[in-house]
Nucleic acid binder design. Structure first.
Lengths: 152, 152
DNA sequence: AAATATCCGACTTCCCAGGTCCGATTTCAG
DNA sequence: CTGAAATCGGACCTGGGAAGTCGGATATTT
């Protein structure tokens, strides 16, 4: 149904939360989990993964926790999702680099690959900072115009 | 992982196939299934569903089968996917009409809803006819420019 | 040394996409 | 009018992956 996993959701939520608290040097997985009512152990794994891919920096021990490795503006939603869920493809046939194994007739995937890239482009254009933007004041404070081109 | 179901894939492939054979009055599910190496019974269900939603017209009995209910240009990929997989949402939290049940704090879903609509827009701009376009002659025969606007 | 963290692999549970089976109905051909 | 070929539609089975849990090892501060 074209939805991303909860882990990816959690990851985005966590990064957003971190972006909203730049004053604190580090926030523990439990802190974030409590803030959102997320299973702590699961969130922990997600954050570990994000650390491994270089989006977060971690610090063990007391008063340890996680912090953004870069400016929130420099982290895209795409990176987060990719780090957690791995490379995503719209078409269910394409697995990794291989094309449709036994059905070379699947000419559908070609145009859908364009769609896939378009979506990736949209996701890449959204940064954590955009997500953390203070509650949409029903106005145009942080509005941002992105233009996505689609060529079939 | 943000992929659409095989059923949706099958549906798109089938519609494309029908669009490529406008001469024949009707093609059976088995015909299409054989052409792509798809499980016939499964494809049958998909086609039944598409019939139910008005994208296809069916005819039982000998020499029966399915045919496009409208011109291929008038059927969007979005309609097909929606008919098969139901309404799709990027966020895993949103279920139907309800928002995140116990976590009103999930402020993530709001910006992602925009992304969701953007994707829907892309899918809506693609017709079955576009998919059936004769094998991309590496040229610009059937090229089509779609422009998708994204506002955060 | 005790408390608080991250770290990481293994494990369980549960849901659903993917696929199958079968029976009923409709339609046409000979 | 009978049988073949098709759609229709429900019930069912199954494997794999998402979601979550457990436990232990390691790091760091007080």
């Amino acid at each position: 149904m074209l939805k991303l996993t909860k882990k990816a959701d959690y990851g985005l939520m966590a990064l957003k939360y971190l972006a909203e608290h730049p004053e604190t040097p580090a926030l523990s997985a439990k802190d974030v989990a409590d803030a959102y009512g997320i299973p702590p152990q699961l969130l922990a794994k997600v954050l570990q993964r994000l650390t491994k891919t270089g989006l977060l920096r971690s610090h063990a021990g007391m008063n340890g926790g996680y912090a953004l490795a870069r400016d929130a503006r420099e982290i895209s939603a795409f990176e987060v999702i990719h780090a957690i869920d791995g490379p995503f493809f719209i078409t269910s046939c394409t697995k990794g680099t291989k094309s449709c194994e036994l059905t070379p007739s699947c000419t559908i995937k070609e145009p859908l690959a364009r769609v896939n890239e378009t979506i990736a482009g949209v996701l890449k254009s959204i940064s954590i900072h955009d997500l953390a933007e203070r509650e949409h004041p029903a106005g145009k404070s942080g509005e941002h115009q992105g233009l996505v081109e689609l060529t079939l």
